[in-house]
């Protein structure tokens, strides 16, 4: 079998891009799960809202990509915090499963509403002028926007890691994950921290949505299937470690990209198959603590 280097590298790049979305989304899921003990099924819908937010900002207010990159995560993050205050906070103390069911309901509502008004087809979102075109790297042609998505996602992931693992705020957050009652006794406002954590996770999802808008088009169901893949990523990586989520996300994206080149029929299913293999060999996930 002769290998077409150009096509292989192109698929590898697509894999890296998908991997950065997996990383951003599974990172958010892990952070949220740590604090709220909720698996956020609405994560895919919120990712879609991030993309739509960028679309509205551009088409209604003429606000371009760069501002959308900042504003959309803030707006959708604020929506998430509202959601946490009005719905999710009533679930504390209940079984984890109720959190999954509630957020699944929220995802149905959001996706259903967007489908009502925008149908199922995709809306175009142009690549910003500064990132148009491509670079010839000698061995391959790199579309600048795609390179930007990978690099920027990586930076955001590492910043999030730094925030949680290396700052005072992150230390409080990790302490509150371990023992909320004790942390409250130290005078730290844990409920507010929970709200902010949910906002942070949701903001990351919305950011991924904005990044994906010029590549994947803006569709009401763009997050619906993605979230299931991200669940598989989370099962593979385990939710115990931030760095674990990042590495697993990118790695699985690359593996998926390689599959697209070598055996395209399996590219939709390879992440799920890997999940099965990991469960058979190491049920607690690659980086996760035993549950």
């Amino acid at each position: 079998m002769s290998i077409n280097i150009q096509a292989l590298l192109a698929q590898l790049l697509v894999g890296l891009i998908n991997g950065s979305f997996y990383a951003l989304l599974s990172l958010g899921l892990a952070v949220i799960f740590g604090m709220l003990n909720i698996i956020n099924f609405a994560h895919g819908a919120l990712y879609m809202m991030g993309a739509f937010c960028a679309y509205f900002l551009l088409n209604l207010f003429g606000i371009g990509y760069w501002w959308a990159l900042i504003l959309a995560p803030l707006i959708v993050g604020a929506f998430g915090m509202l959601m946490e205050r009005t719905l999710l906070q009533w679930l504390s103390g209940l079984d984890h499963l109720y959190g999954l069911l509630l957020t699944f309901g929220v995802a149905l509502i959001i996706q259903g509403l967007f489908q009502n008004y925008f149908g199922s087809s995709g809306l175009p979102y142009a690549i910003p002028d500064e990132l148009k075109g491509g670079m010839n790297l000698g061995f391959m042609f790199l579309p600048i926007y795609r390179g930007w998505v990978v690099a920027f996602s990586l930076v955001i992931c590492l910043l999030t890691w730094y925030l949680i693992e290396r700052t005072r705020l992150g230390a409080n957050l990790r302490a509150a994950t371990e023992n909320p009652t004790l942390v409250r006794a130290f005078g730290i406002n844990v409920p507010r921290m929970i709200t902010l954590t949910y906002g942070l996770g949701v903001g990351l999802a919305a950011l991924a949505g904005v990044l994906s808008a010029p590549i994947n088009q803006v569709r009401p169901l763009m997050g619906a299937d993605l979230i299931i893949v991200v669940f598989a990523v989370v099962v593979i990586g385990g939710m115990g470690s931030i760095m674990g989520s990042i590495i697993t996300g990118f790695t699985l994206g690359v593996i998926e990209g390689l599959t697209k080149y070598f055996y395209p029929e399996a590219s939709n299913t390879v992440v799920f198959v890997l999940m099965v293999l990991v469960l058979l060999v190491k049920p607690s996930g690659l980086t996760g603590r035993a549950s």
Partner: peptide, 28 residues
């Protein structure tokens, strides 16, 4: 045999992922 290797919330995610795996198989 695969799904009962994890409990609680993971069990739900695994069964969902397995059914999506089958969905794509049936699609093709």
């Amino acid at each position: 045999l695969i799904a009962i290797r994890r409990q609680g919330i993971y069990f739900a995610m695994i069964t969902l992922a397995l059914s999506q795996l089958l969905y794509f198989i049936y699609l093709q």
